[in-house]
């Protein structure tokens, strides 16, 4: 094990992020295949996500949408194509530099065995208490934290087993907010929340994160229907892109997803004929 060579290494002369392209994430013809796999998990993915906008990915289980998110902080290297963050190929940045610009909320909300405050400030150890409370507020976590007698000093058990799934998710979001990143990656990060909290969280994010790049992978249409641009992923390819309304009209897989989740009224109000499915 000690002799295994790390697959991801820093470049010898790392570059800095271009200040003019701060927050811009661009995929150029990216393909990716896990080691030993028979097929590509992603093939020929291209898109640009810009600051102040929400870019969303939706698709079925195993479609590869989480893989897109995992490639941005360079957990893996692409098999073909280029990923640019802040105008620079991610392979030309130091991992530390790259990741300091990214707020990442993973699919599995892993917390550490430490106090709530320490968990929130994990990526930003110097954060002040007022700031901690502010990000908790945005992440809709402040209420349940303050209900605890120990408040922000409440000790999380290893793996986070003494808070609920939804609470873990909100703490994990607060942790990402605390870094004050240019780029936000949400990997299916709203699935453990009930509809009401989900909506409140999206409102809070929209008002507080006006100039960051938001990239969201989700299963609920409700979570992403307000996004500036939605990409529909199927079998590792982009099969449709556009706004919610555009996709309802033009993209059959998207319509299928939407019709199973939204009420008739919502579909109709989007200006679409409802297929007589039921």
């Amino acid at each position: 094990m000690l002799e295994t060579v790390p697959a991801i290494t820093d470049p010898e002369a790392p570059r800095q992020i271009d200040p003019d392209s701060r927050g811009v994430v661009e995929f150029r013809n990216v393909s990716f295949r896990y080691e030993g796999a028979e097929e590509d998990a992603l093939s020929d993915i291209s898109f640009i996500a810009r600051p102040g906008q929400t870019t969303a990915f939706i698709g079925s289980t195993g479609s590869g949408k989480s893989t897109i998110i995992n490639l941005i902080p360079r957990f893996y290297d692409v098999t073909a194509g280029v990923i640019l963050v802040g105008g620079v190929d991610v392979r030309e940045l130091s991992q530390k530099e790259l990741r300091s610009h990214i707020g990442y909320v993973p699919q599995k909300n892993v917390l550490l065995g430490a106090s709530i405050a320490d968990n929130i400030t994990y990526g930003s150890p110097d954060l002040e208490q007022a700031e901690i409370e502010r990000v908790a507020q945005i992440a809709q976590a402040a209420e349940f934290i303050e209900e605890k007698p120990e408040g922000y000093d409440f000790d999380i058990a290893q793996g986070g087993s003494n808070v609920s799934g939804g609470q873990r998710q909100r703490l994990s979001i607060a942790r990402a907010l605390a870094v004050k990143p240019d780029i936000f990656l949400f990997d299916d990060s709203f699935s453990a929340l009930d509809m009401k909290t989900d909506a409140a969280l999206r409102r809070a994010l929209a008002t507080n994160l006006t100039d960051v790049t938001l990239i969201i992978v989700a299963q609920r249409v409700g979570t992403i229907m307000d996004a500036d641009r939605i990409y529909v992923i199927d079998d590792g390819r982009i099969v449709g892109s556009g706004s919610h309304e555009e996709l309802l009209k033009s993209c059959k897989p998207y319509y299928e997803i939407a019709s199973s989740q939204l009420s008739e009224k919502e579909l109709v109000s989007a200006g679409t004929e409802l297929a007589g499915e039921n």
Binding site: R99, Y104, P106, L112, G159, V179
Partner: peptide
Amino acid sequence: NGTVEETFSAHTVIKAFNGEQT
């Protein structure tokens, strides 16, 4: 043992938040 286990299970989080030194 706990630290090692945690480092293992929280691997992505540690990497994403530059927590390697900690």
